[in-house]
Design a protein around this nucleic acid. Structure first.
Lengths: 179, 179
DNA sequence: TCTTGAATAGTCAAAATTGACTAAGCGAGA
DNA sequence: TCTCGCTTAGTCAATTTTGACTATTCAAGA
């Protein structure tokens, strides 16, 4: 799911062929996803089958097949849906679960804020639940302490992001702020 | 790898049958691993094949097969090795990568400290690398900011854990601290 | 001109993982 | 005693993921 979102989000910024996609991910996003080349191709096939991307074989010079993928209108819809899903939930410590943050500019500020608030609520609930869980006997203390620390840090960070976003003037599209 | 460590670590505390293992994980460790029942059985088979655990069908009452797994000496060796590997490295934000923390008491304090220090060094290096990476253009700022926050929180937590562990008297086995 | 290595673009068999399914024993209440 | 639901214990076909492999083009240096 996060992987679909990632591919759609990248293609959204312009058509790309497989190599470019994979190369970009490897260079810039390896820290937050473990999507592999071969997995990416499988996913791209699946996205095509769903009509979310189209592919055409481009023959530049006399190179062999070079597959250029681009987002369809349906793909854009799917992207919008997946992005909202992703931003509105919180999944603890799973590689790739934060991919949505990369594409948050795709949303109107008001909605982004609403989703981040929902995410924060989900996170806060997980934290509360975890804090009030019966202390697992003896062992696992360090693990639990670690998880608590992680959840708390996430919560604080998210709160800061929300605050920052709220206090900043809405950047108006094509136009300067009125005085 | 973390999953093998998890199963070995659990069996180390006593022989268990499959259901108990899965139930325990689901109840107490779901927050830090996504090991599923069916995966666990496959893994248990593999651990058996390697001679790390043995299984015997116990027939309590006239229940059908109930497979009780227990750790072998080779399994204990493997556990010790895997635990050291796990504790001595840092893998960013991957479910289950912290499992070793649950079993840290299996190590002598001195060695636990050495490994945690190595882990901290690895983490610090990742952070430095990340901080000094060329600022990815424009987008992804939030994602990067998030990762930075995460790495910094981890580093601070780990440092605290190490400090705490260092300052505490070594709990002597069977005996009280000398005055 | 020949060679070598990097960039480009995938393919595929094998391995790992999952969700959905089966099935038996057992205790308690109707 | 019947049956209903919980506990116990897995199995397996289908899906997903991976690592290793293949190929072509092009630029630059020998």
């Amino acid at each position: 799911m996060e992987r679909e979102l990632l591919l759609l989000g990248l293609l959204r910024q312009g058509a790309m062929h497989g190599y470019q996609l994979n190369d970009f991910i490897e260079r810039n996003l390896a820290f937050c996803t473990d999507l592999k080349k071969s997995t990416a191709y499988v996913l791209l096939d699946k996205l095509q089958a769903r009509g979310w991307v189209t592919m055409q074989e481009a023959r530049a010079g006399n190179r062999p097949h070079k597959r250029v993928y681009s987002l369809t209108a349906a793909g854009e819809d799917a992207f919008q849906r997946l992005l909202r899903e992703n931003l509105g939930e919180f999944v603890a410590a799973k590689t790739g679960s934060d991919i949505g943050l990369a594409f948050i500019d795709a949303l109107p500020k008001r909605e982004a804020l609403r989703l981040l608030n929902r995410r924060r609520a989900a996170l806060a609930e997980q934290l509360t639940e975890f804090e009030s869980a019966p202390q697992h006997q003896g062992s696992y203390q360090l693990l639990i302490d670690h998880q608590l620390n992680y959840l708390r840090c996430e919560l604080e960070w998210l709160s800061q992001v929300i605050a920052r976003m709220q206090s900043r003037r809405v950047p108006l599209r094509r136009g300067s702020a009125r005085a």
